[in-house]
């Protein structure tokens, strides 16, 4: 499977070292449909390929939107791309957020740091009304306000959903919480029979959030999280993304906590 050629149409620096790219297929007939939570393998010429989830609206037929944090060779090469540059794309891969299970439910979106990227696709989808949910709450934690993704857009959406922001540190005027995300999460009223939670962020942050959720009696079957592991092929052949019996690339990246609980607590798995 070889990458299709896409071109950068728009580049936005979210904050230092993190950019959002809008890319469009060079051959216009390249389909760009995906489910929120899925990912593409993005190829930077001669440097390599890494999995990056879609952060744009699934209804946007105008190519893909990816948010990339530059921290390795490949992500740096991708983050350095300019408008007009070419990029290789294979995908979409993996299982996304279980939208069907969100219908009619109170949805709790819990994002940490860059984890907001795949969750923004989900928020787009939920705000579009399919599936219809009875309540949408977004809890977003980051180190500082300057390192929050899509803040303007999230605040704009807060007329249609409840938005709770939390940072470790903030200076000057900051309307959100200072502390950690588990604080406001613990304060949130949760109806355990009618709530579904979607989490994405560093694994340790998800672990602490799951502790709070289960303490509030949310069933393990109502908690979904997106996992990350090293990945080379995205097709289940290279073996790198194995996590217990799971391949993150094809069985994930989104997993139901109930199904992976057994593996979640095993260290260095």
């Amino acid at each position: 499977m070889i990458p299709a050629i896409f071109r950068v149409e728009e580049r936005n620096e979210e904050f230092a070292g993190t950019v959002t790219l809008r890319i469009r297929g060079e051959a216009r007939e390249v389909p760009t449909e995906f489910n929120p939570g899925q990912f593409n393998m993005l190829y930077a010429f001669g440097t390599g390929e890494i999995p990056i989830s879609m952060s744009g609206s699934p209804a946007d037929g105008n190519g893909y939107i990816h948010t990339i944090r530059s921290h390795g060779f490949v992500s740096r090469a991708l983050a350095d791309l300019r408008v007009g540059d070419a990029v290789g794309v294979r995908g979409p891969f993996g299982r996304g957020w279980p939208l069907d299970q969100a219908a009619g439910k109170e949805v709790l979106v819990i994002a940490g740091g860059l984890g907001m990227a795949p969750l923004r696709s989900l928020i787009y989808r939920l705000l579009s009304g399919t599936p219809e949910v009875s309540r949408l709450r977004v809890l977003y934690g980051a180190r500082r306000p300057q390192e929050m993704l899509f803040l303007t857009e999230l605040e704009y959406w807060s007329r249609r959903m409840e938005l709770i922001l939390s940072v470790d540190h903030a200076e000057g005027e900051w309307p959100g919480h200072i502390g950690v995300i588990t604080g406001p999460l613990d304060k949130a009223e949760i109806d355990p029979d009618n709530t579904i939670a979607f989490l994405c962020g560093p694994e340790v942050m998800m672990r602490f959030c799951i502790q709070v959720l289960t303490a509030k009696a949310l069933p393990e079957s109502a908690i979904f999280l997106s996992m990350e592991r090293n990945m080379k092929c995205a097709t289940g052949h290279c073996g790198h993304c194995q996590w217990g019996p799971n391949f993150i690339c094809k069985n994930g990246p989104v997993f139901c906590y109930e199904g992976i609980r057994r593996w979640f607590d095993i260290r260095a798995l």
Binding site: R69, H71, G112, G113, L114, G141, A142, R143, E147, D168, G179, V180, T182, G183, G201, P202, V204, M205, F208
Partner: peptide, 14 residues
């Protein structure tokens, strides 16, 4: 607990 988690810098991906 909150302070400890805050000290861990849990949002750091790197």
């Amino acid at each position: 607990h909150t302070t400890r988690v805050q000290l861990m810098d849990v949002y750091d991906q790197q």
